[in-house]
């Protein structure tokens, strides 16, 4: 017997969340791994405000309760996110699992979270007290720890409407389906008028939080490819210091080597 509330509007869901101890349940694919026996669930799948994928002048807004299948099939979603989403688990899980769950899980191995780090996405968190918009990097506090308050729901993910077409993405899992990332890397680099206008990289599954270092990436911004080559060594050295993989089932040495190889390949593929 499963206890729970079937919320049909965001308002209703937030009201329940404010006064009761409930476990938000979107796709349920993470919750089922270790089911809490006496939990009361707050089912989110019928809340239309959390199921939209729309664009406004500033952002692409993805409802947190959108499944990966919905994301893959939506025309507005950038290719980098689609590619990552398509490598998550297997079709049956992608039909249920949601992007909001992947983020709120708090894991640095979340394949969609990596893309949201690389694109500096923001999260719209709403409670009956009000709402706030938090950059994703501030949402993650540590391993399985997030800034989400007990009465808050992640409602939308906001991705800046910048050009994301020149991207680099690689997931390294233990096999080609149903695999948790061992290392993942995403990067975007845009050049305008001969100069790098943005460079955004993120490394997943290597430490407690996805690694996103705009301060290091800034070394390349404003430079021509030729100028970037001059600082390449320094740039790589900075990441070499910044990436300290934690030891897991797979060695830290392996993870580090893959991160550095992919970073170099990303630069080389952009002529740097």
């Amino acid at each position: 017997m499963v206890n729970g509330y079937q919320a049909t509007s965001l308002k209703e869901a937030l009201k329940i969340l404010a006064k009761e101890s409930v476990t938000p349940y979107s796709g349920g694919t993470d919750l089922m791994i270790d089911p809490e026996e006496h939990a009361t669930f707050l089912f989110l799948a019928r809340i239309s405000e959390m199921k939209n994928i729309i664009e406004d002048t500033e952002y692409l807004r993805i409802g947190a309760a959108c499944t990966f299948t919905e994301i893959i099939e939506n025309e507005l979603v950038p290719e980098i996110l689609k590619e990552a989403a398509a490598q998550i688990a297997a079709p049956a899980i992608r039909n249920l699992a949601t992007i909001g769950g992947n983020i709120c899980n708090g894991s640095a191995k979340g394949d969609s979270a990596l893309i949201l780090f690389a694109t500096d996405a923001k999260l719209r968190l709403v409670s009956s007290r009000g709402e706030r918009v938090l950059p994703i990097a501030e949402f993650y506090l540590g391993r399985k720890k997030t800034a989400l308050k007990s009465d808050e729901l992640l409602v939308e993910i906001l991705i800046d409407r910048i050009n994301l077409s020149n991207y680099y993405y690689k997931k390294v899992g233990a096999r080609d389906a149903l695999a948790i990332s061992r290392v993942s890397f995403a990067a975007i680099l845009n050049v305008a008028d001969g100069k790098i206008v943005n460079c955004m990289t993120a490394f997943g599954a290597v430490s407690d939080i996805i690694i996103r270092r705009p301060d290091i990436d800034a070394m390349l911004v404003g430079k021509t490819t030729k100028e970037a080559k001059v600082v390449k060594k320094e740039y790589i050295a900075a990441y070499d210091q910044a990436i300290i993989p934690i030891k897991g089932r797979i060695s830290a040495e392996y993870r580090k080597a893959v991160c550095m190889n992919l970073l170099r390949d990303f630069l080389e593929s952009n002529g740097i």
């Binding site: 297997a90 096999r175 080609d176 389906a177 089932r249």
Partner: peptide
């Protein structure tokens, strides 16, 4: 290629679930 199982210094096998003991799927 991928089925790896080992014990630690205390003789405990840690690869005791399908997420830690990887077997190939049809996709592989």
């Amino acid at each position: 290629s991928m089925e790896q199982m080992d014990y630690n210094a205390k003789g405990i096998i840690r690869n005791n679930s399908f997420s830690d003991y990887i077997i190939p799927t049809a996709v592989d």
